[in-house]
Amino acid sequence: MSWGWDYLPSEQHVTAGVPAGFLAAVEQRAAELVRAAEALYLDGTSYQGSGEPMRYLDVASGLIAYYVVPRLELVVVCQLTPPPTP
């Protein structure tokens, strides 16, 4: 396996109505999260712990809710809160 990221339950559900600029920042940050998780869990498939809790990250004045699933070598983005529109 190799590390990656995905939306849950689906890209269409999570990204509905999100501005394109914010979405680009989210996808860039998700790729950074994958690289960090890959460095932290060198062999995620053999991970024996209970897993990580949901985390929140500020991105471009908005918010990402995500969690890391080491055994699947996957970063899961569950919710996006775009910045308020003026």
Results as ranks from 00 to 15, higher is better:
Val59Lys: 01
Glu38Tyr: 01
Leu33His: 06
Val68Ser: 10
Gln12Glu: 15
Asp6Cys: 10
Ala37Ser: 09
Asp58Leu: 11
Leu23Glu: 12
Phe22Lys: 09
Phe22His: 15
His13Thr: 14
Met54Arg: 10
Glu73Gly: 00
Glu32Leu: 15
Glu73Leu: 01
Ser2Arg: 12
Tyr7Phe: 15
His13Phe: 14
Arg29Asn: 13
Leu40His: 10
Val75Asp: 04
Trp3Lys: 06
Leu23Met: 13
Gly51Leu: 04
Met54His: 11
Leu74Arg: 15
Pro9Gln: 05
Leu57Arg: 07
Gly62Trp: 08
Val75Met: 05
Glu38Thr: 06
Leu72His: 11
Trp5Gly: 01
Pro83Phe: 05
Gln79Asp: 08
Leu40Glu: 15
Ala36Trp: 02
Glu52Ile: 01
Glu73Arg: 14
Asp43Lys: 12
Arg29Tyr: 07
Val76Leu: 12
Pro86Ala: 11
Leu74Cys: 12
Phe22Gly: 07
Val77Asp: 04
Asp58Ser: 05
Tyr56Phe: 11
Val76Pro: 01
Glu32Lys: 08
Gly51Pro: 01
Thr15Glu: 04
Tyr47Leu: 02
Leu42Pro: 00
Asp43Glu: 13
Thr81Ala: 09
Met54Gly: 05
Gly21Ala: 14
Ala16His: 15
Ala24Lys: 14
Glu52Tyr: 05
Arg29Pro: 01
Ala25Trp: 01
Arg55Gln: 13
Pro83Ser: 05
Arg71Trp: 02
Val18Asp: 06
Pro84Ile: 04
Ser61Lys: 12
Cys78Leu: 11
Tyr47Ala: 06
Ala30Pro: 09
Tyr66Asn: 01
Gly51Trp: 02
Ala16Thr: 12
Val69Tyr: 00
Trp3His: 03
Pro9Tyr: 06
Val69Pro: 00
Ala60Phe: 02
Glu11Asp: 05
Ser46Lys: 12
Glu32Ala: 14
Val77Phe: 03
Glu73Trp: 00
Val26Leu: 13
Gly44Phe: 03
Leu63Gly: 00
Ala37Pro: 02
Glu11Val: 06
Ser46Arg: 13
Pro86Cys: 01
Pro53Val: 07
Leu57Ser: 07
Leu72Val: 03
Ala37Asn: 02
Asp43Thr: 12
Ala20Leu: 12
Trp3Gly: 00
Ser46Asn: 09
Val69Gln: 06
Ala36Thr: 13
Gly17Asp: 11
Ala39Tyr: 00
Ala16Arg: 15
Leu63Arg: 14
Leu42Phe: 02
Leu63His: 03
Pro53Glu: 12
Ala31Cys: 04
Ser50Met: 08
Tyr56Ser: 09
Ala25Arg: 15
Pro84His: 03
Pro82Trp: 07
Val76Cys: 14
Val34Asn: 04
Tyr7Ser: 05
Val75Glu: 04
Ala65Leu: 12
Pro19Tyr: 14
Thr15Gln: 04
Glu73Val: 00
Thr15Lys: 11
Gly49Leu: 09
Ser2Phe: 05
Val68Ala: 08
Ala16Ile: 06
Met54Ala: 08
Gly62Leu: 07
Pro53Trp: 06
Val14Leu: 10
